[in-house]
Write a protein that binds this DNA or RNA. Structure first.
Length: 428
RNA sequence: GGAGGGAUGGCAGAGCGGCCGAAUGCGAAGCUCUUGAAAAGCUUUGGGAUGCAAGUCCCCGUGGGUUCAAAUCCCACUCCCUCCGCCA
């Protein structure tokens, strides 16, 4: 949620910045008008309430002085004032809920230096590491689902039997590979991030206030008999932990990581680009989250990008850093860098981490604040990114490790974690 | 799942339906005193809305209700504690 003060104080500038994200200025104007109306109505309600309170207070003192008749008169007057007050309150409530409806549809403001653009075609590749096209020429590369089925570490048919499309059964050496990846990622970050094992189901309030559930979002799975939701990412649980809290400035930055299962409905997403482990309803991920002071958030963002890239470095996977253009930014982000791993089997760059700077957008909604040394309260800035998203990294490791003899050699860094160095050579 | 008890300011803990945004204690900050410190004394010490400001309004777990007036009464919900049941 953006600060509604921005709408009143700098309507033009705010509308302009939101327009870079593709927001219709008319919507911004609507929000501004409602915010203004609310401001006036608040004043009216407060004045009406004051009148009523004054008469009420007089009734109190009249009663104490046993001036029953006058008290009775005042009571009639207060009742009238009360009735009028209620009308105004109802009006204000209507305005406030209309305002909230509109403001909730406004995304976070993009950072000023985010490149202009309307779609992913306008995203900018900032850097590419370890990618040598020559390496992929003149050799047969297979998609991970073919390798996986052949080596019996991936079973799409049984996954479909159990749960339907876009679910996976990973087994044997494949399961060890997955487990090893997550262990490795957690180990890499354990000095800088506090490891958390949170609940995987959260209240409606938590998922709503982290911005992952709006009326327009059908991404999350909901439990039928309880007011609970399966988390679509560990970020929901990690961010939710501090909802409504006031942190000490000395406690910032907070850096958390969590290995969780993530569930996403991905409504209507089935298709050719979802084969194998490219996109799943359920997957495993190590998530990194930071809360920090506003003045530190750009630096924390840069280091978060570096942190997210470290597993890819260690695994020796070619990857690139893509900065999302204004129009492709996610709803709550002001800046996003995607990390994409090259997948030789499908000849595509697959997003394996999306590092977002969400500034105060979530913390305003979730009321996560901190007290500065001087005593002033301020909203924390929040950042998040995948520390390692297993399915796609799993896929990249399998595809890159493919040997001419059909076996898969694991990256050296992973061997201690997976407990094996090769899949399919002799034993699966 | 069943039976009870509870939820108030950073913490502890009072609070006859009106004079309670809230006693008191602790903690914290400032000042006085002091060479310095301790002790002592004085002062300050929640959040939000609105306003240039003075001020006004709202918030005592959450949401409703009763009333001229609710921290105080009623209802629902949530969470915490104790006991019983069940259970990895």
């Amino acid at each position: 949620m953006i600060d509604t003060k921005l709408l009143l104080d700098d309507f033009e500038g705010t509308a302009r910045r939101l327009a870079r994200k593709g927001v219709d200025p008319e919507l911004v104007r609507q929000a501004r008008d409602l915010a203004e109306a609310r401001r006036h109505q608040v004043q009216g309600v407060d004045a009406a309430r004051r009148e009523r309170n004054e008469v009420s207070a007089r009734i109190g003192s009249l009663m104490r002085e046993k001036r029953a008749e006058e008290a009775e008169q005042a009571r009639t007057q207060a009742a009238e004032l009360g009735a009028r007050l209620e009308e105004r309150e109802a009006e204000l409530r209507a305005t406030e809920s209309a305002l909230e409806d509109v403001v909730m549809r406004l995304p976070n403001l993009p950072a000023d230096d985010v490149p202009d653009g309307v779609s992913d075609a306008d995203n900018v590749v900032r850097a590419t590491f370890g990618y040598d096209p020559a390496r992929y020429a003149g050799r047969d590369w297979q998609p991970h689902w073919e390798i996986g089925e052949r080596l019996d570490i991936l079973d799409a048919a049984r996954a479909a039997k159990l749960s339907g499309a876009m679910f996976a059964v990973v087994q044997g050496a494949g399961a060890r590979l997955l487990r090893g990846l997550t262990s490795m990622a957690l180990d890499i970050h354990r000095d800088a991030y506090l490891e958390v094992i949170p609940p995987h189901v959260v209240r409606t309030e938590v998922i709503t206030r982290t911005g992952h559930l709006t009326k327009f979002d059908t991404q999350a799975y909901r439990l039928r008999d309880d007011e609970l939701w399966l988390i679509p990412t560990g970020e929901v649980a990690l961010m939710g932990m501090h909802q409504g809290e006031i942190l000490a400035e000395a406690d910032l930055p907070r850096r958390y990581m969590a290995y969780t299962v993530c569930w996403r409905r991905e409504a209507g997403a089935a298709g050719k680009e979802t084969r194998g482990l490219q996109r799943l309803h359920e997957f495993h991920k190590v998530e990194l989250v930071k809360l920090c002071r506003p003045e530190d958030s750009e630096a924390e963002f840069q280091s978060l990008v570096a942190d997210a890239a470290r597993p890819l470095e260690l695994l020796g996977l070619p990857y690139r850093i893509v900065e999302l253009c204004s129009g492709d930014l996610t709803f709550s982000a002001s800046r996003v860098y995607d990390l994409e791993v090259y997948s030789p089997g499908v000849d595509r760059w697959l997003e394996v981490s999306s590092v977002s700077l969400v500034t105060d957008f979530q913390s305003r909604r979730g009321q996560i604040r901190f007290r500065r040394e001087g005593g002033a309260l301020d909203y924390v800035h929040a950042l998040n990114g995948s520390g390692l998203a297993t399915p796609r990294v799993w896929a990249a490791v399998v595809e890159h490790g493919l040997q001419p003899d059909g076996s898969v050699v694991l990256p050296e860094a992973l061997v201690p974690y997976a407990g094996i160095s090769t899949i399919g050579a002799g034993r699966a």
